[in-house]
Design a protein around this nucleic acid. Structure first.
Lengths: 134, 134
DNA sequence: TTCTTTTTTAGAATGATTATAAACTAGATA
DNA sequence: TATCTAGTTTATAATCATTCTAAAAAAGAA
């Protein structure tokens, strides 16, 4: 799916700013974890004729999250990461570097939750493996 | 361990304010999950002759966290929960009510992580089970 | 073009948390 | 008990990510 379609599928017109955001987020073959402030910085370094506003970046990220192209991760106390890998998977969080690393489903034994809660249904099961330097 | 000792063990003098915080946090037999803002509110409702300042509450909570009497949980996007249950365990997070529920180790099959990362060691493995109303 | 709607933007507002610096207290000592 | 000193509390300001606002700019249709 090209960027224009991705944008239109999210109910957004393919504007210059939004296409630039797409280029950075999806123009790669690997998973990409990012903080919005880093994304803004990257955009403004790359296209420095005119700075993109934080509001636009937030709006676009939210629209992508809503339409399922991004997943939000709350790991660190303050910052919220986004992940371009929206398939079900888990994460390592490197406490030394504050880096996120994907941990695929098939790299973890199936998790069985023995406790059930009446009237409730499980919407997701996520493992966070915190790691640090040996 | 009484509150005075708990405080002294955290390198804190047992002041009136800190004892009040202890009373609310540890004077119960069950796990207690809380947000700092709720704790401040509770304190000020209970002892309303003179309001306790947020700074004191944060300082005390941080000291307890540092000395291992509290565990911090980053689940919700904005708020950070603290948990008086510092033993290793997992959580349900009810997305409908924003409530946290403990999930003990023995209620989950042992998790095996097949992926290893060179130079890194695992410091914790935490499961977050998101639930919602059926 | 011209019109209407959507988008972008700078800057203000918000809300949790942290820092600051001055007033206050605990505990020790004389 | 009075005094001293270090630790504590507090109000207030500062910070930082995020959201809101309202006006200017751009897109797309007619």
């Amino acid at each position: 799916m090209n960027f224009e379609d991705k944008l239109r599928a999210s109910g957004l017109r393919p504007t210059k700013q939004r296409l630039r955001i797409c280029k950075i987020l999806f123009d790669r073959d690997k998973t990409f974890h990012f903080l919005v402030k880093d994304l803004v910085e990257t955009l403004n370094q790359k296209y420095d004729e005119k700075k993109i506003s934080v509001a636009t970046v937030y709006n676009t990220v939210h629209a992508f999250k809503k339409s399922g192209y991004l997943k939000q991760l709350n790991i660190d106390t303050i910052h919220h990461y986004y992940d371009t890998n929206v398939s079900h998977h888990h994460h390592f969080f490197d406490e030394s570097t504050k880096e996120l690393i994907d941990l695929n489903n098939d790299q973890v034994e199936k998790i069985e939750i023995k406790k059930t809660l009446p009237g409730k249904t499980i919407s997701s099961v996520e493992i966070l493996v915190k790691i640090e330097n040996k």
